[in-house]
Each structure stands twice: as C-alpha cells, then as structure tokens.
Computed example of a mutant assay.
Amino acid sequence: MIKSPIKLAAVATFLTAPFFLVSPPVIAAGGGGGGGGGGGGDPYGSSYSGPASSSPQQRDRKTTRRTKKPTKQSAFDDPAFREAYRTAYATIYERNDYLAAIDQLHALKHDDQPNVANLIGYSYRKLGDFREAQLWYERALKADPNHVLTWNYYGLWQIEQGNREQAQYHLTRIAAICGTGCDEYRSLAAALEKPPGTGLVY
C-alpha cells in the first residue's frame, strides 16, 4: 500500500517534468525574437520592441504607419492646393522672388506639411534670414523625419553657417533614407567637398 502512492507520485512527476523542461524555451524564443525583430530595421527609428512581425500587434502598427504616412501629403490630393503649391514653387525656382513665395506658401494654410515648411525655410535661407530658415527646416523634419530634401537643404544651411560636421551628419541621414546615389546626397556631398567659405549656389 505504501509503495503504490510513491509509485504514483514518481510517475506523475516523470510525466509532468517534460512539460516544464520544454515550455520555458518556447516562451523565451518567442519573446526574444519579437523584441529583436520589432526594434531592429524599423525605418522610422521606433523604439518599439513588441511581438514578432507575424503578431496582430505588429501588423496593426504597420497598417497604422501606412495610413499615417499619406496624411502628411494629403494636401496634394486637393487640385487647388497642388496648383497653388506649383505657383509658389515656380516663384522660388524660376523667379527667385522669395518674399512673394513665403506669402504664397503661408496662404496654403498647411505650414506643417513638410514640403511647404521646407520651401519656407529655403526661401528664408536665400533671403539671408538663417535663424528663421533653421526654424522652418526643423519644423519640416518634425512633420517628417525622413523628408530627404529638408535634410539636404538644412545640410547646405549648416555648411553656410560653418557647421561642416553637422552637415556631414545630415549627409549620413540622407544616405540612410535614399542611399548615396540620390540627387540630395550627391548635391550635399559636392557642397561638402568645396573649400570652406565657398559660396553655395543651391
């Protein structure tokens, strides 16, 4: 009679032991893999370290990202906005009338749209108002940290201010966004190769 409960306890322990030995590594592998995958190649620099990409939370995050990104450009869905933006663009690059362009860009009522904020910054820079230009470049990058043309123009601003190390940082940001073959990278790299004090034509 005494041996029977001991045998039953031994058998029960033996049968449940494999479950405990197998279970923790499965849980650890799932959690560890998700943390590395979630924070790893996130182009948005997110510190998110949630589940692996196959989980619903990760899919929701990606879906949210896809739906958020177009809202930054949604003003361009409006034909009237597009036409007014083109007019301001031509005022800057064809007529070099930067004061008029600033008024035209403000009239769009989308100062936080990165393309608009960047061109306002560019116009102030061309007028020699470097402090105001900096504020608008930073506003554009706040709206879209991957706005490559702002990184380019702001990098040129840095060179004009004598901040070549900072301009080099901007160049590395551009490379991370669009590579070393894009126009924005090539033009900033060319400006950095010029001797300090050389007037920029950009």
Rank of each mutant, 00 (worst) to 15 (best):
residue 109 K to W: 08
residue 120 I to N: 00
residue 148 V to M: 10
residue 120 I to W: 00
residue 6 I to V: 15
residue 164 R to K: 09
residue 109 K to L: 09
residue 36 G to T: 10
residue 198 T to A: 11
residue 154 Y to C: 01
residue 37 G to S: 08
residue 71 T to H: 05
residue 45 G to Y: 08
residue 132 E to N: 10
residue 146 N to I: 04
residue 176 A to M: 03
residue 199 G to Q: 14
residue 175 A to P: 02
residue 114 P to C: 08
residue 71 T to R: 09
residue 87 T to I: 05
residue 19 F to S: 07
residue 151 W to A: 00
residue 139 R to S: 02
residue 171 L to A: 02
residue 116 V to G: 00
residue 188 L to M: 04
residue 41 G to R: 09
residue 174 I to M: 04
residue 149 L to W: 12
residue 69 K to M: 12
residue 12 A to E: 03
residue 76 F to K: 01
residue 154 Y to E: 05
residue 85 Y to G: 01
residue 117 A to N: 02
residue 159 I to L: 03
residue 120 I to T: 03
residue 111 D to E: 15
residue 29 A to P: 10
residue 17 A to R: 04
residue 154 Y to H: 11
residue 69 K to G: 04
residue 8 L to Y: 08
residue 50 G to N: 03
residue 42 D to M: 12
residue 28 A to L: 09
residue 95 R to P: 00
residue 26 V to Q: 15
residue 2 I to K: 15
residue 158 Q to R: 13
residue 185 Y to V: 01
residue 1 M to R: 10
residue 114 P to Y: 03
residue 140 A to S: 15
residue 128 G to F: 12
residue 74 S to M: 04
residue 3 K to S: 11
residue 55 S to E: 12
residue 79 P to V: 03
residue 21 L to V: 08
residue 151 W to T: 01
residue 88 A to P: 04
residue 132 E to M: 11
residue 9 A to R: 14
residue 115 N to A: 15
residue 182 C to P: 03
residue 46 S to V: 05
residue 134 Q to F: 15
residue 66 R to A: 15
residue 48 Y to G: 06
residue 153 Y to N: 05
residue 140 A to M: 08
